[in-house]
């Protein structure tokens, strides 16, 4: 009796058959050659590993606030307190103009994409070095690592957005149809963060100076972006300088969608253009440096 019950009903052979089937059906050919330039940037490979992007993003989110007392609240505390400080010093004391909307809403609407962007760039910039154990032991498209670090920031962004909705409700500002552009802007900001983050992460593998320079550069970048001040206080003839920074156009557009104000399509178009150019350049640099990661990191 005992004997019979240990003979499997069908589950084991079935599983095996399926695997055998997988083997004989499609045998992928992997060609390994010294890569040149764009040669090896394999989009199909990237697609095949899309689940890894999901799992690494999920890991980053999962462990970020482990062993913290406040947990996910940190996603809100950061922009919230920055907004309170800015409101006090720039809004109340310095009487900074804010396009005719209450300064807290104005500042928070700028801080929201900025916090996402700066965290995404910082995290992805350090991601390759931080995951060196993966890079030296397993193959997968390396872009996934900085990519996951950027994606993990989106959750924080969404959590922090609730505060903005609260603020708008408090000040009696209604959402308008232009809010529908919001996801598109989010995508572009994410791509920009990916472009910068990827580039920084690759450089960081080779030059560890980046780790020290990055926080400082990010801080400078914040002042070069219209977050505490509106873009229109910059004199007209210098405004193009501001717009070389694609984040300027994006932050202004973020405010416009939330507060239902007219878009400056030229600014947005320019921001997109610069973002895509940066992303392409960054992919190229990353690809060129990628092959030496395992040897250098």
């Amino acid at each position: 009796m005992d004997f019979e019950s240990t003979v499997p009903e069908s589950s084991v052979p079935l599983g095996d058959e399926r695997i055998e089937g997988e083997i004989s059906n499609e045998i992928p050919l992997i060609r390994i050659r010294p890569a040149k330039g764009w040669g090896g940037f394999n989009l199909r490979d990237l697609w095949a590993y899309r689940e890894l992007l999901y799992f690494l993003t999920w890991r980053d989110i999962k462990i970020r606030y482990k062993q913290t007392i406040l947990g996910v609240a940190w996603a809100i505390i950061q922009p919230l307190f920055a907004m309170l400080m800015f409101t006090l010093f720039f809004g109340k004391l310095a009487k900074m103009p804010s396009d005719g909307i209450p300064y807290p809403v104005f500042a928070y609407a700028g801080l929201l994409p900025w916090t996402f962007f700066s965290n995404a760039v910082t995290n992805s910039g350090n991601s390759l070095v931080g995951n060196s154990n993966l890079i030296t032991k397993v193959y997968f498209p390396r872009v996934i690592i900085p990519g996951a670090a950027v994606c993990a920031g989106i959750v924080d962004f969404l959590i922090a957005s609730t505060i903005l909705l609260g603020l708008m409700f408090y000040y009696g500002i209604a959402l308008t149809w232009s809010f529908l552009i919001f996801p598109l802007l989010m995508v572009i900001t994410t791509l920009l963060a990916l472009g910068v983050g990827m580039w920084v992460s690759a450089l960081n593998v080779k030059y560890r100076d980046i780790r020290y320079a990055l926080p400082f550069l990010i801080q400078l970048w914040m002042f070069a972006t219209p977050i505490i001040y509106p873009l229109n206080i910059v004199p007209e003839r210098f405004r193009w300088v501001m717009l070389i920074n694609p984040l300027s156009g994006l932050v202004e557009a973020f405010r416009a969608t939330l507060l239902g104000r007219p878009f400056n399509w030229v600014e947005i178009g320019l921001a997109c253009l610069i973002t895509f150019a940066l992303l392409a350049y960054s992919f190229y640099v990353f690809r060129r440096m990628e092959k030496s990661f395992a040897d250098v990191v």
Partner: peptide, 9 residues
């Protein structure tokens, strides 16, 4: 595929 060859394949 962790590291790339210098020559050959």
């Amino acid at each position: 595929r962790i590291t790339e060859p210098t020559r050959g394949g």
